[in-house]
Amino acid sequence: MEMTWAVLALLGFILGSIPFSVLLARWRRGVDVREYGDGNPGAVNAWRACGPRCGLAAGVLDYLKGALPVGLAHFFLGIEGWAVFPVAVAPLLGSAFSPFLGFRGGKSIAISFGVWTGLLMFEGPLALGLSLAMFTAFLSGDSWSALLGFGPFLVYLLLRRVEGPLLAVWALNTAVIFWKHREELSGPPRLRPYLRRGGREALGGEG
């Protein structure tokens, strides 16, 4: 069992580190997605560089490179307890710090959904998605929404009474999200314009 989780963790890191967005954009248009948008080698910039089909394909592949190795280990090979921790975090670390990109990988959102699918089936990514969507609806900028969204997701995990290894996965996942978005998080979170306008109108109406 020890050799099994170690091999799967290594394979998960390698799979997670494959920059599908970069590869697809080069194959489809001969462009580098890191020259678009915020320079992130992820699915959003693949969409900007090559269109929706390329962006969606990149997003699905980023999701699968988290879901497949973790799901295989957890549900099919029965790896659980603390042995599942390195298997779950390996794809995340591979994606965030890809050796194929000089250890400057993507922001690890799509692969996070994949990892939690591998750990909790579709219940996990659904809870994470609802949590992220709640903050996205109110905050401008994806970085604060991404980071704060992991707070309610922790509440969900605690209410579900998951064991310590999954809480450790959450902690490292949150740390990776923070690190990959740290530049955008240097300023305070800001409400979306429609909420700011509504607030000003309400204050004006009271006056």
Rank of each mutant, 00 (worst) to 15 (best):
L61A: 09
P189S: 12
N45G: 04
V44N: 00
L23N: 04
L191E: 09
I109S: 00
L154K: 07
A43L: 03
A83H: 14
S17N: 02
L24S: 09
N173W: 01
Y36H: 14
R48A: 03
A49D: 06
G51W: 00
F178Y: 13
E163Q: 14
P91G: 07
T4N: 13
L11F: 13
T136V: 14
F138R: 08
F76L: 15
G66S: 08
A168F: 04
K107Y: 04
K180S: 02
T117V: 11
D38L: 10
S98D: 07
I18T: 03
E35I: 00
H181E: 06
K180Q: 13
G199F: 14
R26I: 01
G151Y: 13
G66R: 06
W47C: 06
S21F: 06
V176F: 08
L15V: 14
T136K: 10
L68P: 07
L128R: 00
G30Y: 08
S112I: 02
S108L: 00
R200I: 03
S186D: 12
Y156A: 00
L101I: 01
V84G: 07
A110P: 03
L15P: 10
R29L: 10
L68I: 15
P193A: 11
G164R: 11
F13P: 04
P19V: 00
F85A: 12
F85C: 05
G124T: 02
F76W: 15
F178G: 05
H181Y: 01
F138G: 08
L203D: 10
L132R: 06
M1H: 14
G37V: 02
L119Y: 10
E201V: 08
G37F: 01
G42P: 08
A146N: 07
T117C: 07
L148Q: 07
I109G: 01
P19L: 08
G78L: 03
L130M: 14
V44E: 09
S131F: 06
K107G: 07
L8T: 11
R28H: 13
F113I: 08
E123G: 14
L158H: 02
A110N: 01
A90C: 08
W47D: 06
G198T: 00
G71D: 12
R48K: 14
G105P: 06
S140I: 03
G37W: 04
G59Y: 04
L147I: 01
T174S: 12
W116A: 03
L195I: 09
F20D: 04
G199V: 07
S112Q: 05
G37K: 05
K65I: 03
G94P: 05
I18A: 00
G66H: 08
P52I: 09
G59K: 02
W179A: 12
V176L: 03
S140N: 11
P165K: 13
G129Y: 06
L10R: 10
A137Q: 10
L92M: 06
F75H: 15
T4F: 01
G207Y: 00
P86Y: 04
F76V: 12
E184T: 08
L68H: 03
L120S: 12
P193I: 07
L128W: 04
L159P: 01
W82N: 03
G71S: 13
A67S: 12
L93S: 05
